[in-house]
Nucleic acid binder design. Structure first.
Length: 266
DNA sequence: AACTAGTACAACCGCTGTACC
DNA sequence: AGGTACAGCGGTTGTACTAGT
């Protein structure tokens, strides 16, 4: 017997369909099992990642809004690189997405700082003195403070990032935010955000920033799934799922299901 | 038009935590 | 209590795309 090689690399549309189909069947828990029965020749890990980062119906896609960016910055200054924790505060965003954003953001910022430093090397106020000034004014938790002053992975240094961000916004003509302002903003908008952010996803809209290129995510309609982020319906027993899946199919889902079936049956 | 650098994003790897036996 | 399997998390890498030269 020749054991089939484990597939790696980018997922194909067919694989996505298969995965969605089997996750609907068995829930999004037993990834090794799903990987096996689906015949995807992927690892359970890989399947989980694809689902969590790309196929999950709860995902909001597209660029982070300025509000989200601010939230990420603030939460990062509190929690450091606890991406999944941060992601939980941004409905529809994945830890991977936020991690990627942060990395890009930090690179940009670093490049900017370098530019500034080289162009005004004689300036008495360096970015590092700024950041040390700033960090002395704001307590951060151990995670974040560990990063201040040392070259961490993303060269984060929580607090001066906020300075950078706020400064950037001021340059852009927007008003400058203090941390208090930011927090107030966050608290005020949190509930509204939950609604605004999730609504388009649930409704399968392709509003700006919700542009799935594949059909799978839109097959979940709130009416058919009654999705609840704290208790996802797809976390269920095999028996439950097989009993519930079919009677609750919406027309939209059903057509996609058939499409998926066509893939599976060849 | 061709090349390069920068950016965004998907995916993998390795480690850790946790549930189960 | 210890071992094992699996899920989750954070870090890292690869690559496609885009803007600038």
């Amino acid at each position: 017997m020749v054991e089939e090689e484990i597939r790696r690399g980018p997922w194909t549309e067919q694989e996505d369909f298969k995965l969605v189909y089997f996750v609907n069947m068995f829930g999004d828990r037993r990834w090794d099992f799903i990987a096996k029965v689906s015949g995807l020749n992927r690892t359970g890990k890989s399947c989980r990642l694809r689902w969590v980062n790309y196929l999950h119906p709860d995902l909001k896609r597209g660029k982070l809004t300025s509000q989200e960016e601010r939230l990420v910055t603030e939460l990062h200054s509190k929690w450091g690189n606890r991406w999944s924790r941060i992601a939980r505060k941004l409905p529809g965003r994945t830890d991977n997405e936020i991690k990627n954003y942060w990395r890009t953001h930090m690179r940009k910022k670093k490049a900017l700082e370098k530019k500034r430093a080289s162009s005004s090397s004689s300036s008495p106020v360096s970015s590092s003195s700024l950041s040390s000034l700033f960090s002395s004014n704001h307590a951060v938790d151990s995670d974040a403070s560990k990063e201040v002053g040392e070259e961490s992975f993303y060269d984060t240094g929580g607090c001066d990032d906020i300075m950078g961000l706020i400064g950037a916004e001021e340059e852009g003509g927007e008003k400058g935010y203090s941390l208090d302002d930011i927090w107030e903003d966050i608290v005020m908008s949190e509930e509204k955000d939950m609604y605004n952010i999730l609504q388009p996803v649930y409704e399968g809209h392709s509003e700006e920033g919700c542009n799935f290129s594949y059909p799978p995510p839109m097959i979940y309609s709130p009416s058919s799934w009654e999705f609840n982020s704290s208790h996802p319906l797809w976390v269920m027993d095999e028996e439950e799922s097989s009993m519930m899946l079919f009677p609750t199919l919406s027309d939209q889902y059903y057509s996609c299901y058939e499409q998926g079936n066509a893939f599976l049956t060849g």
